[in-house]
């Protein structure tokens, strides 16, 4: 027997808007698509923007609202990065689906059912350039009977010939207000108690990504019960406690390498992710009043370099220690490197 089916649904799915009009904060695309529901006119679409802003939600919602549950399977093809979308699939599966003719438009069961199919290519930024190129022809040839929806985080990864054929919509990070009101809504439905401080902490740590906010909220509810404080939220979010960052800065200001090294050692042993540490150092440094512009510049330059190295898979300890010792020299106005010619 499989117990507890209902409650095991993640809240991000449970509270995924089913209708375009319920998508928050993305007014432009909502307006255009609401119009589509009336006129059934729809161009090829390109949705882009950061994670958790409603791109997939919007595409799925419009597809469902246009065709209803009966026709959905035959009219909508949804492919994402977990599907094979290499050049061969573009030439076979996608092309075949695109080529099928559909009957003329008439409403069915209250759904508009326009005379075309929709192909949703989610996470399209992970498609190779070759595969994208192979799509060009298909898009053109079958544009009467097929509409394409491209979804991605980085529009620069979509080749120009595809992008230029689409109506483009940028999904903005959600504002703190909107974020708060969605979270309050969910908290109410789930019977959670969230004080003002917790609410604003959650909005600010999720940085405009509503999925992140909802995931944190559910995690905190599972772990700490129905009364949730800002501390609980910070602990599930992977944000490093501010005092850890401060301690490192103090050690650097002391000008003592061994002290700084000890802090770095501790940070790594505690398992704090170095990339997260770098962004929190950046925040503190940029806002500090007692650090000169030149010092800030020196530190930030190093932060950027280290961030890149981490993405390449460089060792976290060495990178953080390099940042720390560089910061130490900057804060104590020591020369950048020992004066030897290179």
């Amino acid at each position: 027997m499989a117990p507890l089916l209902q409650s095991s649904q993640p809240w991000v799915e449970k509270y995924r808007p089913k209708q375009v009009k319920d998508v928050a904060h993305q007014d432009e695309v909502v307006r255009v698509l609401t119009n589509t529901l009336e006129t059934t006119n729809c161009p090829h679409m390109l949705f882009y923007g950061p994670p958790g802003t409603g791109k997939t939600t919007t595409a799925l919602a419009i597809a469902h609202q246009l065709f209803g549950p009966e026709l959905y399977k035959s009219r909508v093809l949804e492919l994402n990065a977990s599907d094979d979308r290499g050049i061969n699939v573009v030439r076979t599966k996608i092309k075949d689906f695109a080529a099928v003719a559909v009957g003329s438009s008439h409403r069915q069961g209250g759904y508009p059912c326009p005379p075309y199919k929709i192909i949703i290519l989610d996470e399209a930024d992970s498609m190779t350039e070759d595969a994208q190129n192979a799509l060009r022809r298909t898009m053109e040839t079958y544009s009467k009977v097929t509409r394409f929806f491209f979804i991605c985080n980085y529009i620069s990864r979509i080749i120009e010939p595809l992008a230029s054929r689409c109506a483009k919509f940028r999904f903005k990070p959600l504002s703190e207000d909107i974020m708060s009101s969605r979270i309050l809504h969910i908290s109410k439905e789930e019977g959670l108690n969230l004080d003002v401080e917790a609410l604003s902490a959650l909005s600010s740590i999720s940085q405009g990504d509503l999925r992140r906010a909802i995931t944190y909220l559910q995690s905190a509810a599972r772990l700490f019960g129905s009364s949730i404080s800002s501390k609980d939220l910070i602990s599930v979010s992977g944000v490093i406690p501010q005092e850890v960052v401060e301690k490192l800065l103090i050690a650097c200001k002391s000008g003592n390498f061994d002290l700084a090294n000890k802090e770095v050692n501790n940070i790594v042993a505690e398992g704090y992710p170095v990339s997260q540490m770098l962004s929190q150092i950046l925040e503190v440094i940029v806002e500090a009043d007692d650090i000169s512009d030149e010092q800030k510049a020196r530190i930030c330059k190093k932060l950027a370099e280290a961030d890149k190295c981490l993405i390449d898979g460089a060792d976290e300890y060495l990178q953080l220690l390099d940042v720390a010792s560089n910061m130490m020299r900057a804060l104590c106005n020591m020369p950048q490197e020992f004066p030897y010619e290179s």
């Binding site: 991000v12 950061p50 994670p51 958790g52 985080n153 990504d209 999925r211 992140r212 995931t215 995690s219 599972r222 599930v236 992977g238 398992g271 992710p273 170095v274 990339s275 997260q276 981490l310 993405i311 898979g313 976290e316």
Partner: peptide, 14 residues
């Protein structure tokens, strides 16, 4: 470390 895990995955996990 989470440094090399892309943000969309981090936002889908505890």
């Amino acid at each position: 470390s989470t440094s090399n895990i892309i943000a969309p995955i981090r936002s889908r996990t505890l």
